[in-house]
């Protein structure tokens, strides 16, 4: 659309325009690039990616609370169906509290909280946040109903249905958040997308188990202890595998103190729960608290490791260069 003065001194219509100027075409004879002069590989060491604008309290908190809520609802349903009312009651209340908290965190982090409902304009499978919103939409009222009926004793049938419904939706709530953070360009998140849901599932289970131990009498907390142990095991396995598979982008994960602390707390909590939780309420409560803290630390750790990986251009650039080299080599082999 830009105009050119076409009529020129020599009247040739096919004259080159300035778009075809080639600066540096005259001058000395050509020299080839000096070898080994590759640049640092970044622009003044600045990140390639823009930093995720999320606050850790809100979003890491959301990851934790969402997991706690989801797994708690499932635990509640299981407890209710297997006749552990105290555990069920505790888990339902916890689920409601956690989902409430997570919703608050989520909305709080929106730049325009008043526009939360815009999430309901569309349903986008390509957007874990959209999917998550619909999961929350399905899950939230059931969890609320479950807790409300539990606490008030009204509408027991409805309560049971809601409990089961929330219990079935709970795991989705607990794991979609992994897809949420992995579906970004943030290296330490994205590259872990295979293990992250398991890590989150494990961590959610551990936290729900922990809460169960904390809130339910020892007698009914058996499932909580087992869930905590299994969850912790899953979390550990996923973490180990993730670090091994990811390559250099796992560095920020490996370096994360929070992750180390989270793991230690979870393992301590799970083992303590197994060893003493059956006997001592105090021990059970301590184990539960450790598990909750461990899960929270893990989520905050993942969050911060991701931010750190995005802030360092190496984690964006180098794996991509390696990928290019590999595909080039493959192409050359062919």
């Amino acid at each position: 659309m830009s105009s050119q003065t076409d009529v020129r001194l020599d009247d040739a219509p096919d004259l080159r325009t300035e778009r075809e100027a080639t600066p540096g075409s005259a001058g000395r004879g050509s020299r080839s690039l000096r070898p080994g002069e590759r640049d640092a590989g970044s622009y003044y060491g600045l990140p390639v990616l823009n930093r995720t604008p999320w606050s850790d309290h809100d979003i890491a908190g959301y990851l934790f609370l969402g997991g706690l809520a989801g797994a708690s609802s499932t635990l509640a349903a299981a407890a209710e169906l297997t006749g552990r009312p105290a555990l069920a009651r505790a888990a339902k209340v916890a689920a409601l509290g956690a989902v409430g908290g997570s919703l608050y965190a989520l909305i709080h982090d929106l730049g325009k909280p008043s526009r939360f409902l815009n999430m309901l304009r569309v349903f986008k499978v390509t957007s874990p946040m959209s999917v998550g919103t619909w999961i929350l939409t399905a899950y939230g009222p059931q969890a609320a109903t479950a807790a409300a009926t539990e606490l008030t004793g009204l509408f027991p049938r409805l309560g049971r249905a809601a409990t089961v419904g929330a219990g079935l939706a709970g795991p989705a709530l607990a794991t979609y958040t992994a897809a949420l953070i992995c579906d970004t360009a943030v290296p330490a998140w994205h590259d872990g997308f295979r293990e992250m849901p398991f890590l989150f599932a494990g961590s959610a289970a551990a936290s729900a188990g922990g809460l169960g131990m904390l809130a339910a009498p020892v007698a009914q907390a058996g499932p909580a202890r087992r869930v905590a142990l299994a969850g912790t095991a899953l979390e550990c396995a996923a973490t180990v595998r993730m670090r091994r598979r990811m390559g250099m982008t796992a560095e920020p994960l490996r370096r994360s103190r929070l992750l180390k602390a989270g793991m230690a707390l979870s393992v301590t909590g799970a083992l303590l729960g197994q060893a003493l939780g059956r006997r001592s309420r105090v021990a059970a409560m301590a184990a539960g608290a450790a598990l909750l803290a461990g899960s929270a630390c893990t989520r905050f750790g993942i969050f911060h490791a991701g931010i750190a990986s995005g802030d360092d251009p190496r984690y964006t650039v180098e794996p991509q260069l390696a990928r290019l080299a590999t595909s080039r080599a493959e192409r050359d082999l062919r």
Binding site: P171, T175, C182, A201
Partner: peptide, 27 residues
């Protein structure tokens, strides 16, 4: 990033099922 999303959903789904199953078994 969404190139990997189908796989992400599969993994998330598997993890959710594992969670569901795990809790069920535990209870």
């Amino acid at each position: 990033t969404t190139a990997d999303l189908p796989s992400m959903w599969r993994h998330a789904g598997a993890a959710a099922l594992a969670l569901l199953a795990g809790i069920a078994v535990a209870a």
